[in-house]
Amino acid sequence: DEEIRQGMASFGGVDRRFDFRLKTDRLVLLSDYAHHPAEIAQSVKSIRELYSDRKITAIFQPHLYTRTRDFYKDFADSLSLLDEVILTEIYPAREEPIPGVSSQLIYDNLRPGIEKYICPKKDLLNFLATKSFQVVIVLGAGDLDNYIPEIIKILH
């Protein structure tokens, strides 16, 4: 029992699950490993509860060509709960590209009126430097989390 109490007292949470990386009066930046439409929807709903009066932007890197092919409409529905979406190319992990499957599928199915962009990962930092943000969440199971330190420098 004592070991469990000590463990609970020192537990800092799970990395990349609604992980606040920057939190000021002007800007909030979170990182979340969410890479399935249901996970994304739940993260967005939670952010919306916390920051209902602010513009919420997601930077999303789809994970796997097969998942994108199978769930692109569901991804679009979940991401359409946001005010703004920036899509990067698919993180392939162990898969080879599938002809016709790209972030464009999600982009084309986002709700009308949402601010939306497709930005190659190599151009992401320069793109972010041209915009202003209030609440940003980096979503996905790929390698976008590696960009967080540079994103913080650009946005802060």
Score class of each variant (00 low, 15 high):
G140Y: 01
F133D: 01
I40M: 10
D123Y: 04
I59G: 03
I114D: 04
F20G: 00
V85L: 07
H35Q: 10
R16K: 15
E150P: 02
E39Y: 10
I86Q: 05
N146A: 11
L87M: 13
A38D: 03
T68I: 12
K122P: 00
L155I: 10
I118E: 11
H63M: 14
V44P: 02
P120Q: 07
V14M: 14
D145V: 07
P149F: 14
V44K: 05
P92F: 08
I148V: 05
F60K: 01
Q61K: 00
H36W: 04
E96L: 15
L30K: 08
E89Y: 06
I118Y: 15
S80R: 01
S43E: 05
P99K: 12
A9L: 15
E115N: 12
E150F: 11
S46E: 15
K23T: 06
T66Y: 13
D53V: 02
E115L: 14
P99H: 10
I106P: 02
S31M: 13
T66P: 06
I137T: 06
R54T: 00
D108R: 08
R111Y: 13
P112K: 11
I40H: 05
H156S: 15
A38V: 07
E39R: 13
R5L: 14
D143E: 13
L125H: 10
F11V: 06
H35L: 05
R67Y: 13
